[in-house]
Design a protein around this nucleic acid. Structure first.
Length: 220
DNA sequence: AACGTAGACAACCGCCTTGTA
DNA sequence: ATACAAGGCGGTTGTCTACGT
């Protein structure tokens, strides 16, 4: 077996497009297979993570709403750090997102407590008040959802932005797709034998044409 | 204007679980 | 029943941006 070098670090728009296309074709299960046939030099794990945390059509992007924050608090007090379990109760949110939110929140809280302990005159209720105020401010910030993505344009200006991708994915979800995104392929292609698909997509040329087909489908 | 800091988020790592041959 | 591969999950780290000084 030849040891393959896998790419690491941030995903490019090209990679995202490729991944979206191939998940559309093969479904979001066989990640190692998708990683191979797509020609992405990423591990299956990496592909899955990117899909689950960023590209999945059902995801909400942007800050948690105060309602969601309350729910996270409530569920965390019940279940502890069972992020995936908590995430299941917040449609469109990922375990990673909630984990990140919680981490930030706890750090802030810890700092406030430390400050409160340092200056005994300031009551703890003040600190908790300020933290809840902070949380409420998040709603305003939700306007900035997917800001970062917009900034990604810088290296692919004339290309197809992730905003566009999400728009298209959203449209596909609403207008075309019954329930799962990969059903845009009328054929259950992911049922095909691995050998069979190797013949279909032996190298990236074929992969690319498939990817182009996929992105053409996505863009309309 | 420059610099430092905190917050937000993406991504990786390692362990555990589950499915399959 | 068992070994192996793949997927899932939680913890952690790195990077970028906004904001305050």
């Amino acid at each position: 077996m030849v040891h393959q070098e896998f790419r690491k670090g941030p995903w490019t728009e090209q990679e995202d497009l490729k991944l979206v296309s191939f998940v559309g074709l093969f479904g979001d299960r066989r990640w190692d297979f998708i990683a191979k046939v797509s020609g992405l030099t990423r591990t299956g794990k990496s592909c899955r993570l990117r899909w689950v945390n960023y590209l999945h059509p059902g995801l909400k992007h942007g800050k948690l709403t105060p309602q969601e924050e309350r729910l996270v608090m409530e569920l965390h007090s019940k279940w502890g750090n069972r992020w995936s379990r908590i995430a299941r109760k917040l449609p469109g949110r990922t375990d990673n997102e909630i984990k990140n939110y919680w981490r930030t929140h706890m750090r802030k809280k810890a700092q406030e407590e430390k400050r409160a302990a340092a200056s005994p005159t300031s009551s703890s209720c003040q600190s908790s008040l300020s933290s809840s105020n902070n949380n409420n401010n998040h709603t305003v910030n939700s306007v900035h959802a997917s800001k970062k993505v917009g900034e990604d344009h810088q290296d692919g200006e004339e290309g197809y932005s992730m905003d566009d991708i999400w728009k298209d994915i959203g449209m596909l979800e609403e207008n075309i797709l019954p329930s799962t995104s990969w059903e845009y392929s009328s054929e259950p292609l992911w049922m095909m034998d691995e050998e069979e698909s190797k013949m279909l997509f032996p190298l990236s040329d074929q992969c690319f044409s498939c990817y182009e087909h996929g992105s053409a489908f996505l863009t309309g």
